[in-house]
């Protein structure tokens, strides 16, 4: 299963982590890659732990779930604490910088950035945090081109919201430094 790139997106219900996961999967489809996306959540519509998964590969994907993620996005302390315990070796963890980073994580593999604050203050809408995150994730991992990512976003947002989502995507991209981009770029096997 070495050709699989497993991504997990975790947060609180309503933060949009499932949509973030779906957009990454859509970008993979647009880029001509194989992908499987799934999610796990409780019966409540808001609150509770929400977890979504995207597997990307150049080859046919059989098992649809993530077992040891190569990448984790965590937007709440609870999800960060829970899901950093099962990571692949060398996994990249992206977390909101308002959270406390567990001491057992390798700081060299952690990207702590102000996702929630950027959405609220710079983009102006707290609910764009998931799109800010998507922009930052792709700026770091560089799995897709900017065009592929924007097309994926467009397929999953209401008409008329393109501008604010583009703004969120760009704001997310700007959270990643060139050094981080060089360190975390991932080439699919």
């Amino acid at each position: 299963m070495s050709n699989r790139y497993e991504m997990r997106f975790a947060g609180s219900g309503g933060q949009g982590v499932i949509l973030a996961s779906v957009i990454m999967a859509e970008a993979a489809v647009i880029a001509g890659l194989k992908t499987v996306q799934s999610q796990a959540y409780g019966p409540e519509a808001r609150g509770g732990v929400s977890k979504a998964e995207t597997v990307v590969s150049k080859e046919q994907i059989w098992y649809s779930k993530v077992t040891l993620p190569n990448f984790l996005l965590a937007l709440t302390q609870a999800s960060l604490n829970t899901y950093t315990k099962t990571l692949a070796e060398g996994a990249v963890v992206m977390m909101d910088d308002s959270l406390d980073c567990p001491a057992y994580l390798d700081p060299g593999r952690v990207i702590a950035i102000p996702i929630l604050r950027t959405a609220k203050e710079k983009v102006g809408k707290a609910f764009t945090a998931n799109i800010v995150a998507v922009g930052a994730i792709n700026a770091a991992l560089q799995l897709f081109t900017d065009e592929e990512l924007m097309e994926a976003v467009k397929r999953h947002i209401p008409a008329g919201t393109e501008e604010i989502n583009r703004k969120a995507l760009d704001a997310g991209k700007e959270l990643i430094t060139p050094e981080q981009a060089a360190a975390f770029v991932h080439h699919l096997g």
Partner: peptide, 9 residues
């Protein structure tokens, strides 16, 4: 649920 909620290209 596995197949119903799974997304694929």
């Amino acid at each position: 649920e596995i197949v119903g909620h799974m997304r694929e290209g």
